[in-house]
Design a protein around this nucleic acid. Structure first.
Lengths: 330, 330
DNA sequence: CTGTTAGCGCGTTCAG
DNA sequence: CTGAACGCGCTAACAG
């Protein structure tokens, strides 16, 4: 590990003071002759400023933390992609942490973020998280909640979950389907709860009964689905609240050897590129991920810049109902 | 922004010296009475060590850098997921950077990693990267190349690209197809090059001519595909070297209104959960992502632990040919 | 405009 | 086993 040069090495080599080097490197005007000598010394010594020292000195880590349940699905990986791009444009580095919906891990991750002096945090918190949980660890750092909501005192960026679910449900109703069921696991998750509400409200407004196929986890959901889909009064249509729910439903269709004609109609949440090429092209509610991330990062950067500004603003973005065939449309 | 407590605050509050606090917190034995007083002070002052100061002092940033072209596809997002899990188990934080196959960005990202004193780096380098490009910025830090190869002096973890492509090609041949084409964009990419080689070698060994549908970028690939698939001598089978290539092919099938029976057979690279539910269930070469990441992280951590150990070892993992229907099988 | 100096918060000496 | 003092590399404050 070759020893790294420091400002002082550069300063000596250039025959100037350390702070002159520092200033020049940060774009503050210095005498042109000195500037040149500094540049030369930097090149010769292969100098690169030490970010850890800079962080300590300046109290700014130039790091923003991203705390997601996981990153291995379409929604989070696309969101992360865009976060990284915007962050790096602004000179920030992304520290990535995932909590897997485990409270212990989430707490740990928050502590890590605190120890690292993350200047801001974008979080999709696990169900049941409270503002106190967060503020106990991160008392006053800028935070934006993405796709989760647990306090009006925090900026949140969300899908218009209720409305989107209601729209999708209404679409089924307009097809003339009466027996529309709502399927999801992990019903504690904020966005799922909202979507369930939107679905129920829409049915209720038409005097129809809601039918929940809701399980705590996915193995349990598989069981419930098996029962429901084998029954005589199989639902005519399914509103699947997540891409994972869609996947489990599809697996069951296959297991039960249901031909496309025999299957209930379906609308899912979260679009993906191959959705149009499924055996029955999948109709979905698409989330405006880039716009959501832009809003979240704007809020976060503004909070960072303006100091202790608790934005106290929640943005809900409309979902787009992408009609393909699984909803019953031709 | 509430002021943070420091070791000294804790020391004063506990009536001990600063170094005693530091020692206790790092698990070194201290007098039990003092230990208790320290714990109490830590709780009262809500003290949490400052990682930036620690990094500066100790020269260890406890950060590992991940530099990928992007994270918004199945392969990279799953790899990243596992990297994050292993890193955080070992007390490391992941700094995420993406280079979008732009040399300028890649260089920038490497500089960032250097400034941050990343203790190790996992990189999927862009085509054309040389060892010198990397070592010019990161002279001697532990590095593992994942899914890219540019020097035997660096530990690399790869798919057995050539063999996997050859196997898939052979599978087509066993079906009796003669006109097997290979389709990809970005032919400079290391793994695509290898797959092309494996494909060609297999055909050559049977005395067959290879047929490359290879473009610099995806728009150009679309053009080529349109021509090739509309021609009289349309290929019987397509080996698609990436999930993106598969997607573009599927789009074209749709645009050309090719019924499943009319389409060329196809095998893709990279499995995804819904591959089994496409209108023609997709046969693919699946990469053993968890095993690849485990190997990469093992190597990286070993290098970090053992100091300046240039592992100089390249691991190739076998791909698994997942047979569904698109290859011509029932 | 420039150079010198003093910390940022921690861990690691060195005496005691 | 403990505490005081130093220094990691940088930048803000001060004095020239």
């Amino acid at each position: 590990m070759a020893k790294r040069s420091t400002v002082i090495d550069v300063a000596e080599s250039a025959g100037v003071g350390a702070s002159t080097v520092s200033r020049h490197l940060r774009g503050i005007t210095v005498r042109p002759k000195l500037a040149e000598r500094i540049e030369k010394a930097v090149r010769e010594l292969d100098y690169e400023p030490d970010e850890t020292a800079r962080s300590l000195r300046g109290g700014r880590s130039r790091t923003i933390g991203v705390l997601f349940p996981k990153v291995s699905n379409a929604y989070f990986s696309h969101a992360l992609q865009r976060i990284e791009e915007l962050a790096s444009e602004q000179g920030y580095t992304v520290a990535l942490l995932t909590h897997h919906n485990d409270p212990k891990e989430q707490l740990n991750d928050l502590l890590t973020l605190r120890r690292c002096r993350a200047e801001g945090v974008i979080i999709t918190a696990m169900p049941g998280t409270t503002l106190q949980d967060i503020r106990a660890v991160l008392p006053s750092e800028p935070i934006v909640s993405l796709d989760s909501f647990f306090s009006p005192e925090l900026d949140s960026v969300l899908l218009q979950n209720r409305q989107s679910a209601a729209n999708a449900t209404r679409h089924f109703l307009e097809h003339g389907y009466k027996a529309v069921a709502c399927v999801t696991a992990r019903p504690g998750t904020y966005s799922y709860r909202e979507r369930m509400d939107g679905y129920s409200a829409e049915l209720r407004s038409r005097g129809l009964q809601s039918r929940m196929i809701v399980a705590q986890d996915y193995p349990e959901l598989d069981e419930m689905l098996r029962v429901e889909l084998s029954s005589e009064q199989r639902p005519e249509a399914l509103l699947a609240l997540s891409d994972t729910a869609v996947l489990h439903i599809m697996k069951l269709f296959q297991e039960l050897r249901l031909s496309p004609a025999q299957r209930p109609k379906m609308i899912g949440f979260d679009d993906f590129e191959l959705a149009a090429f499924l055996d029955v092209p999948l109709s979905v509610v698409r989330q405006p991920i880039p716009e959501m991330v832009d809003a979240a990062m704007n809020s976060l950067l503004r909070q960072i810049k303006e100091g202790t500004t608790p934005g106290t603003q929640t943005l809900s973005m409309p979902g787009q109902l992408i009609i393909r065939n699984s909803c019953g449309c031709k």
